[in-house]
Design a protein around this nucleic acid. Sequence first.
DNA 1: ACCTGAACACCGTTCAAGT
DNA 2: ACCTGAACACCGTTCAAGT
Lengths: 189, 189
Amino acid sequence: MVRQPAINAQNRPPLSIERIIDAALRIVDGQGLARLTMRRLGDALEVEAMAIYHHLPRGKEQLLDGLVAHVATAPAGPVADGAAWRDALRAWAHGYRERLMEHAGVLPLVVTRRNPVALTTTVASLREILRRGGVPEATAAAAAHTLLGYVIGHTALEVRGTDEDGADRAVDWPARFDAGLDLVLASVS
Amino acid sequence: MVRQPAINAQNRPPLSIERIIDAALRIVDGQGLARLTMRRLGDALEVEAMAIYHHLPRGKEQLLDGLVAHVATAPAGPVADGAAWRDALRAWAHGYRERLMEHAGVLPLVVTRRNPVALTTTVASLREILRRGGVPEATAAAAAHTLLGYVIGHTALEVRGTDEDGADRAVDWPARFDAGLDLVLASVS
DNA sequence: ACCTGAACACCGTTCAAGT
DNA sequence: ACCTGAACACCGTTCAAGT
């Protein structure tokens, strides 16, 4: 008789940080950040809210940090051909925007929480691609911040959906995003 | 005997939306957004929390909308010499960044709240400056969104204070901001 | 080790009542 | 018109207790 590891009396697997973050993200995506409460999260996990504290001792703070780490950590992968850095950054930007749009509810957290590694590692990956493309170190560092700042800021504008232009024309957001992206990338060298 | 208008039994002026928003902003700036509660706001105004609802029937939602309107509504003024649009936009960007830094606590709200006029009017003013500078309509619209998105996003990165670079160098944020701003403005035409 | 149950101090908001 | 006081349903979190 092999011992079943990690199955408790109620016949369900014990909680894990991953399952907790996943459930929290589902609540935020489906109902909004304001409805993410420890008690509701407990319900979703079929557990008393207090059980969550056993896995996240810092409580809700740690939960929100986990959400940011899960959503905002998306470094650009290394590029085979260094010269194609412009295309690589464009592709990364599209992916990052989509990620933020999918989990729009965590955007305020991305913008608020102090000093998480998420953005640091992401911005470092961008700088590395620029560096390998032959862009001077100082320019690469500035351009990496500019690009990440643009993607986050523009996506924030899009999510908030200022759906018209001030001139009563509907905004084609993906086109806007691409146009701005080109503007940012065009002068990097 | 001239009637003293709007002085009540307790010998203090009645509340007004302006005084409420001011007090709320002071709490957010001094103690952070999380500590802005209706009861604390009431204390600051020397009033029971429930009195606030008489002036803001939509309650805390309306209060937060008011904070965003107060902080994020900062259109660029009209420019005498249309040809100097690049300098005008640079000056506006510096002012807007400073505003957001001063009231960093409301940044998550700026990024979250749906469809306030604040950003719409601001972006419209940027587009107008570009238009008068002779930039084609479509480019002007895209560049205005790009610029506002950049300023908000980059300031958000700065506020969160990823104080090092991933390469252990301290970041000179104002210099970074200027470098990115030039990058954005350089290719607009 | 992992989870529960009761409890505490605090929320936002309503509603009837006071002046 | 403007504000108060009590009340309601909900928070995050602690702590001792169960298995």
